[in-house]
Amino acid sequence: MSYSTALSLTLPSLTSDARHQLLEKQPLLSLYEVFATIPDPRSKHGLRYELAYVLTCLVAGFLCNCDSTLAVAEWCRDQRLLLIRLFGPRRFLCPSDSLYRKLLPRLDAEQIECALADWIRRTLQATLDDPIALDGKTVRGGRSDKHSAPHLLSFRTHHSQETLLQVAVSEKTNEIPVAQALLPCLPVDGRVFTADALHTQKDFMRCVDALGGKTVLTVKNNQPTLYADLTAYFADPHASFAQDSTLDQHRGRIEKRSIRVSTEMNSYLADWPLIEQVAELTRTVTVRKTGKTSHEVVYLITPLTALEASPQRLLALVRGHWSIENSSHYVRDMTFGEDRSRLRSGQASQILATFRNLAITLIHRQGSSQIAATRRHFASHPHLAFRFLLPRSVAQQ
């Protein structure tokens, strides 16, 4: 009986450029094969589990309703027959919780992020005009006595909800320069980028514009002069604007969004030369059970012209961004138990967050927005989860 899997690991550890070239030639590489290109920090002497095998089992476990490395290890023991069928007989079949806890902190999160980002872009299902949202999240469970909780910035498509890229934001900086530096690595041309008020910066708008994209940005008090100008304009009873509204009822809440959009401020806001439209968005939420109502007013700026973005489209773009921001945090925390994870060593918390994002992306790619229900389904039919991860010839066994 062999130490190694029955699958052929023909891909050596690759540089980012080499992997990029490989994906150009073979865009249908499986995730298992992509994992095989990631450098393994362990000595080859006495190696029991290949890195690609360990990572494939981890992602499969996440898809099958496991929230921790301990749960994944237990799940692997329960799926011995399936693992033998897919990977062939081997002496060491079930990676343990201790293996994951020792291995993950030794891996390079950036190398994993780059490998997955390359694969995601080459297999992207999003349409060419699917907007992209910037979404920052702090992994609270990753906090330790020596290190603060890692803050991760991700880029995710609105409609297909595929995570294109995720990076850690160093304690010595913030999301603003990181986002601007990463834009050339993303499919910007022809897309609209949405972001919260932190990224309402002239340089960010210019960077996106130079790459052929557009932005819809929120204005709050971090831009006090711009915020005051927009507040004053929309408070004027003689202000000229187009308007629209939407009404949603879900989870015991009635949510109304009303937008007023104007092109009259463009020449006045000369120090923001790309602005073509400004808007005031009012969000009113009523809780049916208590009757309590809350109001929120935010302002928007965009280089999209009135012909490119009607009030209705601007409402949809903002709603898409808020949906991504809220659902991403909720799913990773509540459905995957991210903040309950206590694996803090090295970059393990970031790596686990990366694989949670990957699992969510894979579920959305099969057309489901019900993450928890789909994970329960995979838990009952684990062979279906492996179809996302293995070469087609193996996954269909």
Rank of each mutant, 00 (worst) to 15 (best):
R206P: 00
T194M: 13
L247H: 13
G213E: 13
Q201M: 09
T163C: 15
A242M: 05
A242E: 14
H238K: 11
H151N: 06
V219F: 03
F234S: 02
S170M: 05
P150L: 03
S148E: 13
R206L: 14
G212E: 01
D209Y: 05
I176C: 03
L182A: 06
D244H: 13
V192H: 10
T215E: 07
L165S: 06
K220C: 05
H151F: 15
Q166T: 14
A179W: 05
T194W: 04
A179V: 08
D203C: 03
N222Y: 08
L230I: 06
V169S: 11
A195Q: 11
H151K: 05
T218R: 10
P177C: 05
V219L: 07
L226E: 05
A181V: 10
C185Y: 03
D244C: 07
R191K: 10
N222P: 01
L165G: 05
V167T: 15
P224R: 06
F234L: 04
D244I: 00
T194E: 02
E162C: 08
G212T: 01
C185M: 10
F234D: 04
H147L: 14
Y233A: 04
D209H: 15
F204N: 09
A228F: 00
R206F: 10
A197H: 08
L165A: 08
A239F: 02
G212H: 02
H158I: 11
A195L: 12
T163V: 14
Q161H: 15
A181T: 12
R156W: 09
V192Y: 09
T194N: 10
V169T: 09
A181D: 13
D209E: 13
V188K: 00
P184M: 02
H199T: 07
V167C: 11
A149F: 07
A239H: 08
Q201Y: 04
H159W: 12
L186S: 11
C207D: 14
K172H: 14
T163H: 14
P184F: 03
Q223H: 02
T225E: 15
H151E: 07
K220Y: 02
L217K: 11
T163Y: 13
R156N: 03
H151T: 10
C185E: 15
S240R: 14
V169P: 04
L182V: 07
T215P: 00
L152Q: 10
P177F: 01
Q166I: 12
Q166D: 05
D229F: 01
H159L: 12
E171N: 15
L153C: 08
S245A: 10
S154E: 08
Q223R: 15
E171A: 15
C185W: 05
S154V: 09
T163L: 07
M205S: 14
G190S: 07
L217M: 13
L198T: 08
G212N: 02
E171I: 01
S160Q: 15
L153E: 12
S154M: 08
S245N: 09
V208H: 04
K220E: 02
L165K: 12
V216T: 10
L217Q: 11
P150F: 07
F241R: 01
L153G: 06
V167P: 01
S154C: 10
